[in-house]
Amino acid sequence: MPDPTITLEIFRYHPEQNETPSFRRYEIPYREDWVVLDAINYIKDHIDGTLAYRWSCRMGVCGSCGMMINGTPRLSCAAFLREYYPNPVRVEPLANFPVERDLVIALDDFMHKLREVNPWLIRAHEQPLSDGEYRQTPDEVAAYKQYSMCINCMLCYAACPVYALEPRFLGPAAIALAQRYNLDSRDQGRSQREAVLSSEDGIWDCTLVGECTVACPEHVDPAGAIQRAKLASTIDWYKRVLMPWGGR
């Protein structure tokens, strides 16, 4: 019996050479324990050095290797060939982002949005370092921990139809990041993040499709973060309108 093989159909686009993208098929050895990224590395090393893509950690934590695999946003280092074998695997760059080249997308917009939500600890008064750490109980850590697990892989953006139709939408990961700081007992900056969150392109653009949460490899649950932000923002609004003297 010949050694088993598997076919990859890979999206190719080169800004210096093509106007439009095309797909190229590669037949490569099939290995049970290979992830899609191993297959792509095999192609790069042995068949076609021109294929461009990003990767580094190969253990699902650096967030660079997100791709559409058979139409679903996945980390290519965590998607095993055996999930698809013997059928061909179709690999495309993450949906909803402009393509720089082949499987490499442009993430300027995403980086800009991360910055927009002021993702750092904001305090009215800094305690001097010599006074030691801010106290935070395990329960208080648990209150925001989930939202701090985001690896910025952007699979959630690739899964979000709202972002597809309205690229100005702040989007799942950025909102989850805002929530991460808002829910941190050490932080006092929620009002500074509110302007961006409840702006025209903020949380209210979300129509609760929920696919971001399904796509997220880190169980961050960005959909939940967005809905909680909506709830908190609504409560704030009522407080402001009904109790204008409330001082917040």
């Binding site: 800004p15 210096e16 439009t20 679903t72 402009p98 393509v99 139809p161 597809a164 696919e211 399904v214």
Partner: peptide, 23 residues
């Protein structure tokens, strides 16, 4: 040089996956 390629969003996008369809 043609620059980054923007893939069009087809008007049938919501037929492409079960979750979008249910949505």
């Amino acid at each position: 040089m043609t620059g980054p390629y923007r893939r069009p969003v087809p008007s049938t996008w919501w037929l492409h996956n079960r979750a979008y369809f249910l949505f």
